[in-house]
Structures are given as structure tokens and as C-alpha cells.
Design a protein around this nucleic acid. Sequence first.
DNA 1: GTTCGCTATAGAAACGCTTCTAAAAACACC
DNA 2: GGTGTTTTTAGAAGCGTTTCTATAGCGAAC
Lengths: 361, 361
Amino acid sequence: MRGKPTLRDVAQRAGCSITTTSNILQGRSHMYKEDMVQRVLSAAHELGYRPNATARNLARRRTTTIGVVLDPQHARITHNVYAHDVLDGVLAYLEPRDYDIRLITPRANDPAAVWRRIDNGSIDGVILIAPVMGSPLLEWRHYSSLPAVAVGSTLPDEYLLSQVDIDNDAAMATLTEWVIQQGHRAIGFIKGHPLHWSAHQRERAFRRILSQHGIPIREEWILQGDYGPESGAIAATQLLSQKDLPTAVIAANDDMAVGFMQKCRELEIPVPETISVAGFDDAYWVQRMGIQLTTIQHDRYQVGYLAAQLLLHQLETGDSRPQRILIPGTLVVRRTVAPAYALASVPTPNATILTEGGSRQ
Amino acid sequence: MRGKPTLRDVAQRAGCSITTTSNILQGRSHMYKEDMVQRVLSAAHELGYRPNATARNLARRRTTTIGVVLDPQHARITHNVYAHDVLDGVLAYLEPRDYDIRLITPRANDPAAVWRRIDNGSIDGVILIAPVMGSPLLEWRHYSSLPAVAVGSTLPDEYLLSQVDIDNDAAMATLTEWVIQQGHRAIGFIKGHPLHWSAHQRERAFRRILSQHGIPIREEWILQGDYGPESGAIAATQLLSQKDLPTAVIAANDDMAVGFMQKCRELEIPVPETISVAGFDDAYWVQRMGIQLTTIQHDRYQVGYLAAQLLLHQLETGDSRPQRILIPGTLVVRRTVAPAYALASVPTPNATILTEGGSRQ
DNA sequence: GTTCGCTATAGAAACGCTTCTAAAAACACC
DNA sequence: GGTGTTTTTAGAAGCGTTTCTATAGCGAAC
């Protein structure tokens, strides 16, 4: 016996067969005499035996390993706060169940490599982190029969992928409703990244609620962003240079909302006195920065946790029919959205004056 | 051929032996006739053959997988900004080299499980993220012969572990030197988490430089922190209630420096006018918050990158003698440290008045 | 035309485990 | 003390690769 001890070494030392050793070491000791069990156990302990995972996986035809795949778009994991939270939830569920996690970050320039690295028998299932439109990962079902759960993107049914995500539509509807309830009827919107489904879902909900309330949608107040804070600032510049201004702006996420507000501060437009701002995501750093942003809070950790749970369920039952789990978001009212009752209740002229006051540049 | 195609299926279709197939598919085709090579290649392609990684690993006795192990102390990866940056660097080096990454987050309550999950033939080497004092991971050499590189902790030699870290000592020395050059001679310090080696190294450098300049060390100005922002605030309360105040405070990291400054603002003590503050780390969120903190910037990404490089080098050469790579930090001068020349050059009374002015509470 | 020395290909033994199947041992029963 | 039944234990065939070693095939050299 040179190198690491193997099952055969243990069997030899215990004076029994490999089968017996294997069985006992796997806890199937009820079928053996106490004496035998003890001999095997102590032999294994004395040799410092540790079963070889690779050999075990080969024989069992499963690996108890889950792949976590980042969309090639989000190259560096660092700047993807979303991924961290989800990953934490995934870890929290998988770790106690003795599953391992393989981190897969495909290069954008070599999509074929993705399949070579994923569907090669080294993982049992996969969690896809926020695949964006046009991502090769979406073609999953064409290339692989491995169970997969997508998180962070509520995808169209046609992709046949199980999904866990927050309910973007419902949450944005709630937020929009609330802003309207505060008396606002002139509301702008900053859209998210055009390749993210969530961006479209949030925008659609915004438009729907406005329509339901009979509020006209002013397209010049709906600006394109990309979820980055800078795009919020750019949107601010575009919006605030207009003659006629909304009394409130909803951004499709917090980063853009903060970018927007920073530009407001530069232009000395008080938030929320002149213009109310709402975000979406309840990003950790915004709170830490001391900004009292009214926003939608949602549990990304929970998303990861449930995704892992769903995946394991599919693994165990073999039932891999696509499922969709949507987690509701929560409206968090802080201070960047002020009631517009004062404005709404007084006749138009007054409101107009205030609006114009806000548009000075 | 049911299930996924194997090497045998490909061989059968190409009408040759498994050996031939394996060789050609691995690129050793120079020893075969062009005709044969083509037959194998197209057979593999037609069947959609993908080699089974588990079987390959077993036969090759290596896995081209690196484990990234988080210290049980840092439970949730989310809140460990350090780990993200390092991980990015590790990924950047490993991914193009076709290494896979296994994320290992041991539970604190079951240290034995660590070895069961790590040293079981499923990985070729390991990167240990910031092991703290008393961590079971430090006993690495007792349990495993797997190559390992520790990052984020400059450990004593006795652990026989290879390491990549920033040069805490030199960087803190530079920072302290600079604060002194600004004319400060009354300097306080907020210590980092007592279980982190970096905390001790930074403190030691601070003390050394003060001594070298013949500046007396006032123990009542050296406060315990734990690297968290709250601990910076607590230290502020403790320090600022003293009768005699330093003109500058160096915190062992940015988080504590910001916590300290927030308390200063509450107490209406202007930074840097009354008290200068310096941090360490150049944390991303601080910049984003718009705080112009003078600090030490260091490249965590680089740390991860070099750690991966070192590990692969050890894997390839078999030379696993412990090495230590220290990366220098860079002083970033922003606005929270003001020159104290004005104070230092005038006679004591004046300075005392200013100090007292700062200590009102 | 036999032998040598190539090259191209195939056979077969690992790798370390799981698990199906069969055999041996132990026991009860008539 | 056979026979049948139930426990215990062992044998052996995979799992899908890699790779060492052996064998055809074949032209060149003697």
C-alpha cells in the first residue's frame, strides 16, 4: 500500500472482502456482525482512509455536484451583487446536503466550450444565473438533458426551463400603484438593460398600472437606461432638460435611481420636494450610503435557496417538467417619494409653477 | 447505445479500437492515417460524443479542478467583498487554462467534514481564502498533501503554507509615514479583528513607524475594532470622549474609518479640519459613496490571480515548498487627511485650543 | 525470401469504487 | 442428520476513460 489507502487496503487490514468494507463504510452495517463492523471501522480509521470521490462518482453515475453557471455577459463575478446573494442561498441549501458546487464562468468568445465543460458527467444539475436575451445558455434544452433551473430571469415558456425569480411584474405594479396613491399623475420611468427580461417586465407593469388609472403615458418621460448608475444620471440630464417635468420618476433599479438623484443634486433640484424618485431592488450599498430610497425589496438569497431546493427535487424525483416559482417583492417606503396631495389637490396653475421651478437648469 | 454515447460507441461507428479513438480525440492524431483520423472525428461529431470527465479523472488521477475554500468563519460569501475580488482573479487565471473551480464553504460546526470534502481526490489543489487564527484550515499540512495556497493572510512560516497577500506591513508603514509627514504627531489607531493576522501586522507597522520617528505611543488612542463599520463608530465614541485628542486617526481598514467618520459627523467634529482620518483597503463602496478617504489601495484581484498561478506552478513542477508572495499596496491621497503643519508650526496653546474644540460632545 | 525495424492499430489492464448475484454459513424444523 | 430457509459474506462485473504493451502489416536490407 503506497500512496493513499484504498478500499482494498482497508479490506485487507480488516480481513474481509471489499464488498463488506464498502457496505459497512456506507452505513449498511446492519447486515453484519458487530465484530466485523468494528474491525472494518477501526481499520479504516487507522489507515486514515478517505473514499475517492472520483471513483465513487463513476460507479454511482452521479456526482452530488451542482454547477452554478454565470451568463457569459456578466464576466466578473465581483460586480454582480445579484450573483453573490443568490450564490449564498444556493450554498445554504446545498452545503448541509453534502452537495458540492462547481463554479462555471463561460467565456463569451467560446460558447461551444460551455457544453464541453458542463455536460460532461461532472455535475448532476445546473443553476443558471440570470441568463440574458441571446445567451447561449438559453439553448440549454437543445444541448443537454441535465436538470437546470434559471434564476434572476423570468423567461418565456418556450425555453422549457425551470425558473425561480422575483415577481417583477407584481412588485413594480405595487410600487407604481403606491406612487400614484401619493397623488402623482405625472410619472417618468427609467428603463433597465434592454437585454434583461426583468427590464421589460418592470416597464410593462409600470405602463399597465398607469393605463389602469387612466394616466396618460408620456413617452418623452420614459428613458432608456442599462441598470448602471451612470445611465440613471444620463437619464436625469435628458429628463430634466425638458420643459415640462414629471413630479415623480420610477427607476427600474436602485442603481439608476441613485444615479438620477446624484444628478438632481448637482442641478440643485431637491428630492423629493421637487421630484420624487423610487427605485427597485433595495440594494445593500444604497442603504449603507445613508440614502433613504423608496424601493422594492426582494430576497435574492431566498431565490438561490429555492432554486437549489427545486433542482434537488427534480434530481430526486426525476420530474424535470419546467416549473416557475415567483417570489413577491415588498414595498419599502422611505423618504424619496413625497406625497403629491398638496399639488394634486390645488388647481393646475400652482402645480405647474412648482414643476417649472423644478426644471430650471 | 442507449444513454450518452461513450468512447466505445464512437469506436464502433468509426470501425476501430477504443485506443485509436481515444488517441485521436485527444489530439494524438499524428500517428494515424488521415483517413482514420477523419473517420473517428466525424463519428464523434455525429454521435455528439462528449468525454466523461469523471472517468477521465479516475484514469488520469487528476481532475483539473481547484478548490476554493472559504474559512468557516466567513460564513456568507456575500458579505465578504475580499473573497469576491480574489475569486475573480482566480477565475481569470484558471478559466482559460481549462481548470474548474469547486467552491467549498465548510460549516464551522463540523471541521472533520472539511477533509472528507476536500481531500477525496476530487480536486488537484486548493486556495484557502483568508484563514483566521485558530482555523482548522491552518492544520492543512497535517491532513493533506494536496498543494495549497493561502491568500489574504500572511501566516507565520511554521504552517508551511504557500501564501499570496498584500504587504500589510509595508503598506501601513507608508501610510503612517505619510500621515506623519503631514505634520501629525498625535496619532490614534483603530485595530482590526483580533483573529486576523493582517490586523496585527498593520498595527505593528503603525507602532514601529511612530517609534522610528520618536513619537510617543499613547495607548489610550489605540482602540480595538473588528474591521466592521460599527466598531469604527464605537471607537470614535471612546476616543472622542477623551480630554486630549489626536489630530489624526488611522483605521486598520476603510470600513472602520467610515464608521469613525460617521460618528464624527454626528458629533459635529469636522474631518479633516479637526481630525484627520485614514483608512486601508480602498473599498469600492466607499468611493461610490463619494467619500474622499485617504487610504491604501491594493489589488485583491491580483492576489487571486497570482495565487492561482502559483498553485498551478506547484502542480506542474511538483515543487510544493512553501513560497510567499507579497504585493505592495499604494497610498491613495484624497481629502480626509489634512496637513497639520499649521498646527505643528504654531506654539502648543493654539493647538490645544483646537483639540479641545474638537472634543466637545 | 527471411529477418529487421518501422509504423499503425488493437488488446487488456488499470483507476477505486458500487452493487448485482451467487455461494457459504447458520439456523430451525421434521 | 437431512432439507429448506434465512442470514452473512465473497466474487465479479461493471462505470468510461487512459495508457502500457503487444501484435499486425509492410517496405528495406541482407
